[in-house]
Design a protein around this nucleic acid. Structure first.
Lengths: 356, 356
DNA sequence: TTGTAGGCGTTATCAG
DNA sequence: CTGATAACGCCTACAA
């Protein structure tokens, strides 16, 4: 009855046109929602397309079209806030009429491979999320690309690519203001040495110390940010270091939630109560911070806003290539949860630890 | 010196050919590593390609080529084991000469949209990871697709699409054997009602009860698996229910790690010690289980094997469409960590809870 | 080893 | 609204 098994060729616009007796270009018009077809014809075209299971060939389309409407996105699928930003990019892109093409960056697949993949599809712009490339590499990439590049999460304003990041310094400052306002006088800060956006956040801590006349208590953790579970191990290590002390700070801040949660859990497992004995806060407001069983105070870095800003930057320059790249800074906001509270009057907590 | 700002057109094979004075087809030959060009010519072509920043237009290529070498992958970027499976698919696909095209499934982007996206690129096969579609929908999708569909993580053998899943029932059985072997006689099981692969895992629990002559203790949790943090909330809710009891089981098993970790944390926050007072185990061996501060015993569901099996199924049917779909079952393995131990002789733990 | 010719499915232009 | 024609960049076949 049907064609044989080898008629696996997907239907084309010509097939639709033949089926309902109109021209190919009319079908094309309808598929693009362009004026020039009657409502009745539109209906018949759409109906036939559905019956045949027609899907436009995007390769042919991009071959013919002058300009692409695709945003290429490079991301690390298993790296904490990146998938959320990707979802936001889909939403923001759709709102501006852009499709999204994903390309993963993994242990066995370099950023350059992902770039070539997306360039091969002739994307209108590239959005690179949390790349492990440094500025020199990113610059080289942006130069060979011919297409605007937007870097999300790291970097500073420069003339080669757009930068979209959150205001980590101000976010940490606000968190410190809140803790100091609660009465905390000794606030420790965990610093995972090899984390790209960490420098900015630490600056927020350092400046807050002066503003509130607090003493500095920096726990610097070495390591490789690409190593599996680096952030979590940094949190555990910081907790262990604290637990070895005779007196504890009344609060600890970490520049990401993975580290903060790991720190918090290690403290709790060792008999401390949070926030009664010690307050803990993080950065990101990652899903893990929102768990009712974690309930971590954190500085929210809105993935939706980051994604939207990245799309805006990409579209802006895709449509006007001569514009210079910009830097977009996304405001953070403090999310107070149950892991922080006013310190106790006397440092009974440290006594409790010493007694263990 | 150079062309003007509007010469943003990416270089083509013709440009390369013109530059070094050879024919376009020779360039094509070289780019495809086909025989028919001298080594010297090859070198010059590659050099010119690099200088010009040439990237082959995959749209044009797919338009011309008879068969595609792309695997389309549909996944939910923020859903726990999926990104890891995606990474594995990249590796396995590359080993077989296939590229990977990703398309995300989000709260605002349906599976069908992702399917259309990938079909538009004329992928050779579709791999659908953890879709929220039921069998009827998946079947309809597979039928309209003309291209083989592989479903990862759920479903049973059928004649419309391939199924690649892990042996959840056997995995849970093995875990139960281990716990019973430690001396546990009362083992509770958390069952998030709306989780796709949960039914199979629960069957493993049920069967183990008979084998070890244990009494059944099933905590059934309602909810919508697409809701944010559903699994975590299920874990917290299960913990709360346990804490209300006068006597506790000596062990609790959950069919995924998110639920198990949330359960564990809630128990710890309420003063129980794990594993001294109660053992907790999960399923997935997700990264979160490996945190030193969580250290959760779990049933490992190897994302690399799942990804490799999915690629194998996809390639197999892409290259021989007439073959019937198969079901591939990936063996799980028990990963014992610190959250499980032999129960205490007397149920002091329950007394401790009652005293709170 | 190189050249010539044609076509993949779509978009675009222009005259009817 | 249709029909004719061309083009996008690449691949394939075949002839030189």
């Amino acid at each position: 009855m049907n064609n044989d098994a080898n008629s696996r060729r997907p239907p084309t616009m010509a097939d639709i046109a033949a089926r309902i007796g109109v021209s190919r270009q009319l079908v094309s018009l309808v598929m693009r929602d362009q004026p020039g077809a009657s409502d009745e014809t539109r209906r018949r075209v759409r109906e036939a397309a559905k019956e045949l299971g027609f899907t436009p060939h995007v390769g042919a389309r991009s071959l013919r079209r002058a300009q692409s409407k695709d945003l290429g996105v490079i991301f690390a699928p298993t790296h904490s806030p990146e998938p959320e930003i990707v979802e936001a990019i889909y939403t923001a892109g759709a709102a501006r009429g852009y499709d999204v093409m994903l390309s993963a960056q993994t242990a066995t697949r370099s950023t350059d491979q992902a770039v070539d993949d997306l360039l091969g599809h002739r994307c209108a712009a590239l959005i690179v999320i949390g790349s492990n490339l440094d500025h020199a590499n990113l610059r080289t990439t942006a130069e060979r690309t011919l297409v605007p590049v937007v870097v999300v999460g790291q970097g500073r304003r420069n003339q080669h690519y757009d930068v979209v990041r959150s205001s980590g310094d101000k976010g940490i400052s606000e968190l410190m203001d809140y803790l100091a306002g609660l009465g905390h006088r000794r606030i420790a800060y965990v610093d995972p040495a090899s984390m790209a956006p960490a420098a900015l956040r630490r600056r927020g801590y350092e400046r807050s110390l002066k503003r509130h006349d607090l003493s500095r208590d920096l726990l610097s953790l070495p390591g490789d940010s690409l190593a599996r579970n680096y952030f979590e191990e940094a949190g555990s290590a910081a907790a262990s270091e604290l637990l070895r002390r005779r007196t504890l700070p009344t609060a600890v801040v970490a520049p990401n939630d993975d580290t903060a949660v790991s720190l918090l859990q290690t403290l709790v497992r060792n008999g401390l109560r949070v926030p009664e004995d010690i307050s803990v806060a993080g950065f990101d407001d990652a899903p893990i911070a929102r768990l009712t069983s974690v309930d971590l105070t954190s500085v929210r870095q809105d993935p939706d806003l980051l994604g939207a800003a990245a799309v805006e930057a990409a579209v802006r320059r895709a449509e006007q290539l001569e514009l210079p790249p910009r830097e977009s800074v996304i405001e953070t906001s403090l999310v107070v949860r149950g892991s922080t509270a006013a310190p106790r009057r006397r440092t009974r907590s440290s006594a409790a630890v010493a007694a263990r």
